[in-house]
Design a protein around this nucleic acid. Sequence first.
DNA 1: AATGAATGAGATTTCATTCAT
DNA 2: TATGAATGAAATCTCATTCAT
Lengths: 181, 181, 181, 181
Amino acid sequence: MARAALLEAAARLFAGVGFAGVNSNQIAREAGVGVGTFYRHFADKRAVLQALVVAAIEALERDTQRALTQVPSDDVGSQLRGRVEALVSFAERDPDRFRAAFGEPGAGRVPAPSARALERRLRGLQRQGRVDSALHPGAAAKATLSMQFALVSWWLEDRTRVPRPALVETLVRLHPAHRSG
Amino acid sequence: MARAALLEAAARLFAGVGFAGVNSNQIAREAGVGVGTFYRHFADKRAVLQALVVAAIEALERDTQRALTQVPSDDVGSQLRGRVEALVSFAERDPDRFRAAFGEPGAGRVPAPSARALERRLRGLQRQGRVDSALHPGAAAKATLSMQFALVSWWLEDRTRVPRPALVETLVRLHPAHRSG
Amino acid sequence: MARAALLEAAARLFAGVGFAGVNSNQIAREAGVGVGTFYRHFADKRAVLQALVVAAIEALERDTQRALTQVPSDDVGSQLRGRVEALVSFAERDPDRFRAAFGEPGAGRVPAPSARALERRLRGLQRQGRVDSALHPGAAAKATLSMQFALVSWWLEDRTRVPRPALVETLVRLHPAHRSG
Amino acid sequence: MARAALLEAAARLFAGVGFAGVNSNQIAREAGVGVGTFYRHFADKRAVLQALVVAAIEALERDTQRALTQVPSDDVGSQLRGRVEALVSFAERDPDRFRAAFGEPGAGRVPAPSARALERRLRGLQRQGRVDSALHPGAAAKATLSMQFALVSWWLEDRTRVPRPALVETLVRLHPAHRSG
DNA sequence: AATGAATGAGATTTCATTCAT
DNA sequence: TATGAATGAAATCTCATTCAT
């Protein structure tokens, strides 16, 4: 209830005017609750963003895993496309949440667990000779996630700029696991 | 003098605690001048960041162009590597400035002119069949620049995480203009 | 039950951090009841302190009267010592309550009835030539009680500073009714 | 100036409605300065009180020392009376300051340096047999100062209750150094 | 009677900006 | 041109109190 309303309001506002452009009173008002209620549920503005990010990561992870069950587990290409599709669909379903959680804070904000998971996958693929072994797996993971979040967030600002299929295609082909040869 | 000191102080502070974490009095103090002097040189706090970004874009562009003169203009691979080298060297030379100008969400993030220039180059290479024509050039340009700034900013936080050559190699190989085949 | 638990919790907290340093929710939590329950038993926060003070005055008065029955009613010196002993014992038995009720500035501080009673006693002793007649009885009563409450409260903070007998002796000898000659 | 105005305003308000009854905005308004100015000079409300107390202790000490130069240094009785006179005159000269600095915070607020100084004097007099050696000097010092501050503060609330000379006489005669014999 | 989430008035605190010197 | 004390609007945060359950 109050907590959920606050998270939703915060996502809407962060997506609209950016984290720095919003204050706790506005979030409370937008959520239709009192200021005090805001502070009953969150220590401060950053805590809302953090909760938003945590929830978004979990939801995205869930969506992605569900999507991957639809895809042959030995087909790396389909898996990659499945992940990208899941990401874009997730972003489309709740654009405000996506932009609030992943669009806002510049560089460093790629969630560490996601980065580590991708890094592990890349290492595996490198061992199998399916990914360029000259890539630094940590750096490539970080780069890929930053790129994906930035690109999808940018796309959400105005989806007419790029047709959805072109976006997906671009995301797939820029991914280090894509076989370009 | 005062202006330069203020810009340097601002870069240091923005890099350390972010734009929102710094106030104009702190910048002035760090620069060793009075607050009044700050407002004599900059209209407001955002103006410093803006000046920082503009100067950084210009300097980076200058460095890149200089680097490209050292490289055969018909060798796309060398050109790419040259650009990446210039970027990393620029970041190394003044890490605070780089992170303040390109690592912050607050600023313009990926500068639009750079994005347009890269987009044009990608289109050209696509026409020549040197870049995957399934990529959306606008999206790919945006993605590539976001990725580069994010990755280099992240690297600057702790350069021991990734050796410089591995960083460069990763940046080169993740670039859409890189021939993976 | 709830009321007693609330009073005890309030005494503990007021003694520790002072009336102003505590809020009603804390008192309720410390008492192991809900906030609502707090307001079911006390009109507001001040009411707890007031109840604490009233109860403490009554209890102290009761203890003192009981102690005085053990002492020859015509021996002023023994009476005085008996009163002081009763005061110190009372403080020792429930230090938190003593400090909460008498150590705080917020409350009424020196209770007016006690002051008037002491004033009356001093006047009587002055008439009998047993107390310096140059003392202003009202002022001396006020001074004596302030002194006693302040000294005992201070002692309770760290009882190792002054041995109990020395405390009692000092309280007795500083009392206007003590025959120093 | 702003600082002095704030201190004066704070003394007036603390004396009038008590420390807890005042907030920083009121102090600023009463002082005729902006809220921000309050925080330029004091970290918070307690800091003003502290500054007030420190200044008051110094001023009182200065006044007392000056008064004592008028009195034969070997006459303990005159010295005592001189001190008491200095105290009462000080309180009369700036009643708000006195009550704000010494009247407000109940028991414990007797300034430690004053207490130590008095304790030292009492020990000296005890060694000379001029003060009851059964008194605990630390406790007696603490008690005496508490008593003096409480009594004078109370007197200032309504000076008609006790004529000045009776107040002085009472203060002198309740002091442990007074020869009652 | 008991509860505790919700409230909002108000207290605290910050800081971009001004301006008299 | 340089200064930094002063400002007050606005943000952050607290807490006594209420009320639906």
